[in-house]
C-alpha cells in the first residue's frame, strides 16, 4: 500500500514499492572546491550505500562547477534516499537520477560510456588473436612493442567488461578504466 518516489508531481499516483535491487546512474552538479568529493563519498560510506562507478571532472570552468557521475545499486527506496541525502549537501547544486529520467521518457537507459586502457602481453597466436579481437571490438592500439599492446576502448560498461574477460586468457596484465560518463538522450539539458 505504500506509494513512493517523492520526485513525481503527485506521489499517490505511483506504483507499489518494489524491493528489487536496481542499478541507477546519478548525475551531480557540484561546486569544484576542496573536499566536495570527500563529502559525497563520505555520505556513501557512512550510510553503507554502494558506489559501482564514479567519475568527476570540472565541466563549467567559469562557474567552477564539476559534474560527478555515480553508478549505484539499491532498492528504489534506497536510491531515492541517496538522491535526497546528496541534495542536502551544501556544495551540491543538483542531483539528477538519469535512470529515472530515461524511464520516464520511455527510454531503456541514459547514454553511458566508459573508456578503458588495457595492456595485453603475449606472442604468437595469442598476440594475433588479441589484435583480431581488438579490431572486432573497435579498440585502438595506442602503444605497442613486439611483446605487448595497449588497447584503448570506449563503450558501455557491459562491452568493456566483455572485452576484459576475453583478453584475460590472451595475456591481460593491466586495466585502467575511467568509470561511467552519462547524459540523457534527446535535446534536453540537465
Amino acid at each position: 500500500m505504500n506509494a513512493q518516489n517523492v520526485d513525481a508531481p503527485s506521489a499517490y499516483f505511483l506504483a507499489e514499492v518494489s524491493n528489487e535491487i536496481e542499478t541507477h546512474t546519478l548525475s551531480l552538479l557540484v561546486d569544484n572546491e576542496p573536499g566536495v568529493l570527500a563529502r559525497v563519498i563520505g555520505l556513501f560510506s557512512g550510510r553503507g550505500y554502494n558506489i559501482d562507478s564514479l567519475t568527476v571532472s570540472e565541466t563549467e570552468h567559469e562557474k567552477h562547477l564539476s559534474r560527478i557521475t555515480i553508478v549505484t545499486t539499491g532498492t528504489p527506496m534506497i536510491i531515492e534516499q541517496i538522491r535526497h541525502q546528496l541534495d542536502r549537501l551544501v556544495p551540491v547544486h543538483r542531483v539528477t537520477d538519469l535512470t529515472v529520467r530515461a524511464r520516464r521518457a520511455n527510454q531503456d537507459k541514459p547514454l553511458e560510456r566508459e573508456l578503458a586502457l588495457i595492456k595485453v602481453v603475449g606472442d604468437g597466436d595469442k598476440r594475433l588473436e588479441a589484435l583480431r579481437l581488438g579490431d572486432a571490438f573497435r579498440a585502438t592500439v595506442i602503444d605497442a612493442t613486439t611483446d605487448h599492446f595497449v588497447f584503448e576502448i570506449t563503450g558501455r560498461t557491459s562491452k568493456i567488461e566483455q572485452f576484459i574477460a576475453i583478453m584475460k586468457p590472451l595475456g591481460l596484465v593491466e586495466v585502467s578504466r575511467t568509470g561511467v560518463a552519462a547524459v540523457q538522450r534527446g535535446p534536453e539539458g540537465l
Binding site: M1, N2, A3, Q4, V6, D7, A11, Y12, V17, M77, E80, Q81, H84, Q85, D87, R88
Partner: peptide, 24 residues
C-alpha cells in the same frame, strides 16, 4: 494505518517509516 507525511525535507520521506502519501 495509512500515513501522510508533510515535510520540507525530501530526505525525511520514507527514511525509517514508509508512508502512503508524502507532501513535500
Amino acid at each position: 494505518s495509512r500515513k501522510i507525511h508533510i515535510d520540507i525535507d525530501p530526505s525525511s520521506i520514507n527514511k525509517t517509516i514508509n508512508v502512503d502519501l508524502p507532501i513535500i
